[in-house]
């Protein structure tokens, strides 16, 4: 049996642009046009100023490593252990943190610079991923 990875729903009305941008090699986040506050997870309404005027913005694709965990107990066939989940805080918008998947047990240090790369899943959508900055 072929084990398919867990494909994200890329048609959600609130988040589909994130995956569409990733397929084009761009990292985006939602922000409020009225008060400039980043909104993540993205919402159509800005809870900080009350505006409905929110839009997707391009991110530089760099960030800092905020936290990580190495999963040593496998619970899903598509994710063989060990692997490491990283939580990266965007340099452009510290209010936004995104997840990345790294194979094995890479050497990591808190606050180290990270950079985005784009993983096209076979026969599936593209995920922004993260690795230590070159």
């Amino acid at each position: 049996m072929t084990i398919h990875p867990l494909f994200p729903n890329v048609t959600d009305r609130e988040t589909h642009e994130f995956f569409e941008a990733a397929a084009e090699g761009r990292l985006v986040f939602r922000a409020c046009n009225a008060c400039d506050h980043a909104l993540h997870p993205p919402t159509a309404h800005c809870p900080y100023c009350g505006a409905w005027d929110t839009a997707w913005r391009n991110a530089e694709g760099t960030g800092r490593l905020h936290a990580w965990t190495t999963v040593t107990h496998q619970i899903h066939p598509a994710f063989p252990a060990p692997y490491t989940l990283v939580v990266v805080e965007l340099d452009d918008a510290p209010e936004v943190r995104l997840i990345g998947h790294m194979d094995g047990t890479p050497p990591l240090v808190a606050d180290m610079p990270m950079e985005v790369w784009f993983q096209a899943l076979p026969n599936g959508p593209t995920l922004p991923q993260w690795r230590p900055a070159a």
Partner: peptide, 26 residues
């Protein structure tokens, strides 16, 4: 354990799980 195996896609519909589950944060 064993959850979501065989699901066509994950997340969406206001769950925001699409930002997490596809990475293996399960």
């Amino acid at each position: 354990s064993g959850q979501r195996v065989g699901a066509e896609t994950v997340g969406g519909f206001g769950t925001y799980d699409e930002y997490y589950l596809p990475y293996g944060l399960l």
